[in-house]
Nucleic acid binder design. Sequence first.
DNA 1: GCGTAACCCTACGCACGAGTAGGTATGCTC
DNA 2: GAGCATACCTACTCGTGCGTAGGGTTACGC
Lengths: 212, 212
Amino acid sequence: MSTAPTFKRLPRAVREQQMLDAAVKVFSRRGFHAASMDEIAEDAGISKPMVYAYLGTKEELFVACLHREGTRMMQAIAGAAAPDLPADERLWRGLRAFFGFVGAYRDGWAVLYRQARGEQPFAGELATMRARLVEVVAGMLDHALRAEGREVAATDLEVVAYALVGATESLADWLADHPDADPEKTATRMMNVAWLGAGQLLHGVTWRPPTD
Amino acid sequence: MSTAPTFKRLPRAVREQQMLDAAVKVFSRRGFHAASMDEIAEDAGISKPMVYAYLGTKEELFVACLHREGTRMMQAIAGAAAPDLPADERLWRGLRAFFGFVGAYRDGWAVLYRQARGEQPFAGELATMRARLVEVVAGMLDHALRAEGREVAATDLEVVAYALVGATESLADWLADHPDADPEKTATRMMNVAWLGAGQLLHGVTWRPPTD
DNA sequence: GCGTAACCCTACGCACGAGTAGGTATGCTC
DNA sequence: GAGCATACCTACTCGTGCGTAGGGTTACGC
């Protein structure tokens, strides 16, 4: 070559990260289907065949995005909520870590999650991650219950945990849509709903439908 | 013609409903993009141009599905939760109606909702419906609060309502994935989480982050 | 300095599916 | 029973975007 620097050659590991960054960005902005491999490649400053060479097909690329972001989030949460703390403390730290994570990655992360829910091939992937979370929350509740000498059917526990996780994801969406909102405060609000509700349940207080 | 009955000619209104039925079914099974107009037409027992003639483009067709199902749901809920009842009673009836609805339409409805969240063009449509629900729930909480002479910032109320709606949608997903589960019982469980938590909040009990 | 492997490109093939053109039959009205 | 609107079809066009063929260039080991 003569004039242009023809842009640097970079080692595979670096390029892969650039591609994943671009992919997350484009997927989250356009949605899985509307996103084109051409746009992702262009955004990554590379040509399309490189993307195929390194990360495989569009589906595989999306799964790679899911994995990277999912792992990051799980680690953020797991790192914050040490398993030897009391249940409320664990829940609080977990929530704070979660909302902190979502707040930091705003558009990128939450929207990517919104994508994966709808698309058949990835719904399973996502469901697995959610199931892990539900399991952790349910385990936490169970632990707290046993500490008080109480016990509850596994299904009931799972459903309550499911509701809490759902509420949390919902607030994460809300946070992603409100750039000015404070993650910490959102976590506090979630903690209020979750813990006061769960706390009552843990103490054996239950609501029963009116007998009509 | 000679042999085959060449299948009946039907009035427009009837065919439109058949098409919408087929569309909901196919959209929910395949997802918006993976669904093809050909498959929808075939499933409705009609040819593709008819679909275009009656319901318009693919996007318009999807919006029509959203509208029909959304209206049905809203009516089911509104009809159950009369505005002059006490808050807990309204909440309970609303939840029961909602889960009853989801239980009845299982795959069709809930999955359709799962679709609309991800796709850019429809996310707004869905957000509007959800906003209406959030508003109703928030209004309910506000009403109950004022009855006790208390008051809470609008944003706080909105966020709590958002969390409750999110938890409910999440359980609806759970219900849709567990065909054997009982809608009524799911509603009771949701009521437990929602009301005991909200009840505490309404009585001025709040959780505060540890000062560390 | 020379081979070889890794990095990177410009094109294209090709399938799939949205939307349409143009025509046929059937019921309804007068 | 002529006319007209409505219901309905088969068979296309055409854009879009995934994935690839085939080839060039830079670095690095020996």
